[in-house]
Design a protein around this nucleic acid. Structure first.
Lengths: 150, 150
DNA sequence: TTTCCATTTAGAATCATTATAAACGTTTGC
DNA sequence: GCAAACGTTTATAATGATTCTAAATGGAAA
């Protein structure tokens, strides 16, 4: 179930982007707001349609917020490169963007498309090999794949 | 269960497909031979080009081995559904097919496209949550993402 | 044989994503 | 304040993996 976090003001989002070396434009703030207000993972196309057909515009805003598809993709790529969000590769058809960049894992149900978090606190992994020379480990992704019971 | 053996004969491949409830056609045998002869993961497009532009045709063979792109995709999907191979979701741009269906994990280097196995023998994981009701865990994928050292 | 059913095929369609090149908006230098 | 310079956004085209479609093929069975 999805909850909305109202504790992200335009100010704090501004600071968040700035702290990650991202110039805060209105489009970037709009996308960041969507990502950080919901406790959910979104694909680029979902974010695009939430902004354009969705009911997420500010109450008092006179301007109809609209961001082009190209900008949505560019911005999510930028956010990921700057470490503001994390890409989750769990479905071959689309990339999910996760506003939680702290270590944690995922559970994925392809039949519903639902991607949920697994806290890293309770999970123990050991025995993973070191990176080969010239490389370093960027991260460890764990995806628990689910299927409908027969 | 099947073991990976570089000396797969046409007969043993035949049996392998039959044991997995797959009718062995010449195209399916050709694709299975590629997958099981190499200790490697391949994407559909790689298999397609190995068959068509690759150096895998018999020198003295009068028959030019050629499998259409549609059949390569259909066959790999069939193999995966029947449990003969496993899909590996590590790169957003393509699905890898892994002839090793026993539990094991992967290391992925996006900069080279190299996907290598991590044996499950040395890896310990605990504390993963159970599947929600109505679902079961199909598998646990671990991908150690690599990056070039700066 | 002739029929039937699965398999294969070429090519079109799809869909997420990326590239292109123009338009736009801000900042900066004067 | 004004204009060049630069980064950002945009519509649109292009890409590339994958899936779909509908026809052709081929083997098994009657």
């Amino acid at each position: 179930m999805e909850t909305i976090n109202p504790n992200h003001t335009v100010e704090s989002l501004n600071d968040l982007l700035t702290a990650h070396d991202i110039k805060p434009t209105s489009q970037r703030l709009e996308i960041a707001r969507l990502l950080f207000a919901h406790h959910n993972h979104f694909a680029a196309e979902e974010i695009f349609s939430m902004i354009n057909h969705g009911s997420h515009s500010q109450i008092n805003s006179a301007s109809q917020n609209s961001v082009s598809k190209a900008t949505v993709y560019n911005t999510l790529g930028l956010f990921a490169r700057k470490g503001l969000v994390r890409e989750v590769i769990a479905d071959p058809n689309k990339v999910f963007y996760d506003p939680n960049t702290r270590p944690h894992y995922h559970m994925y149900d392809p039949s519903s498309g639902e991607l949920t978090d697994i806290s890293a606190d309770t999970v123990q992994i050991s025995g993973l090999p070191a990176a080969p020379s010239g490389r370093e480990v960027e991260g460890v992704d764990i995806v628990v794949r689910l299927r409908r019971l027969e």
